[in-house]
Design a binder for these strands. Structure first.
Length: 259
DNA sequence: ACAGGATCCTGGGGGC
DNA sequence: TGCCCCCAGGATCCTG
């Protein structure tokens, strides 16, 4: 990696000028992902920790092409024609440089839960059982399961036929399993379709995801449920818009546990 | 422990 | 058409 330039406006975690110098001459050795964090492992024991936030993008492009609006960071690549660009209109994202030790400490502090497909049935059940919070809040909590955002939380709950209001401690063994499998199902399908593009993004390359075409509840308030034809509701829960079908995601009225 | 709110930010959409 | 205002989201901090 050659010259590194900060050309934009401050990001959520400010890029320090010293990092540009520190990156010079380093190579990207491997790329990992943990939850919503992208880890670019560099030579010399360094790491670029990237979060895309809402609208962030990491693109490799010909250096001579016009930089899209809201380009904040440029990393010259070994090919003398290419550069890696960090673009982020809303600047909810961030890029930071750290040592591997700092990287591990950072991830440790974040306390990220397992990736969804590494979630053991028993471990998941116990995590739900010990929480009195709503399922929606639990799914958004990166410390319990890493990687779910608002869209996939809502879609997973609908597929599992569970109310977002249901408390973790009230979920039965069968329901917990259904939810875990629904999360896997929703994520696998979304990845297959390259994610969800909600609104037309006005910047950068034009490819879009297609999962939004398969939304069952998200962004479908007042429209009929595709399973039971009832009207999809939208409410605020855990600080986020929460879409659900009050008919087929009904909250059980009676606590059926044998105490 | 947990809920809820505010914060950061921008473009799009609705209302007038 | 052109304002103004609100909304969306992820992480994080603060208050109740």
């Amino acid at each position: 990696m050659g010259r590194v330039q900060f050309v934009g406006q401050p990001l959520r975690r400010p890029w320090k000028p010293a990092w540009s110098r520190a990156c010079f001459g380093l190579c990207i050795q491997s790329i990992e992902r943990r939850g919503k964090w992208i880890l670019l492992n560099l030579t010399s024991d360094r790491c670029l920790i990237v979060h895309l936030g809402m609208t962030g993008r990491l693109l490799v492009a010909d250096r001579r092409t016009q930089r899209p609006a809201h380009t904040h960071l440029l990393f010259d690549l070994p090919s003398d024609r290419q550069e890696m660009r960090f673009i982020d209109p809303r600047r909810f994202g961030s890029v930071t440089l750290s040592t591997q030790t700092e990287r591990n400490r950072f991830l440790g502090r974040a306390g990220l839960g397992p990736e969804p497909w590494q979630l053991a049935d028993r471990e998941w059940r116990q995590a739900l059982r010990r929480s009195r919070r709503s399922l929606k809040a639990i799914l958004l909590d990166q410390r319990i399961v890493a990687g779910l955002g608002n869209i996939y939380a809502d879609e997973s709950l609908h597929q599992a036929r569970l109310s977002p209001l249901l408390r973790g401690c009230d979920v039965t063994q069968a329901q917990a399993r259904r939810l875990r499998l629904a999360i896997l199902n929703v994520l696998e399908r979304a990845i297959q379709l390259h994610g969800s593009t909600i609104r037309n993004f006005y910047y950068g390359e034009s490819e879009t995801g297609d999962y939004q075409k398969e939304f069952r509840v998200y962004d479908r308030a007042d429209q009929p449920c595709r399973r039971c034809r009832s009207t999809i509701h939208c409410m605020r829960l855990a600080g986020r818009s929460t879409h659900f079908c009050p008919q087929c995601q009904m909250k059980p009225k009676v606590d059926q546990r044998t105490s």
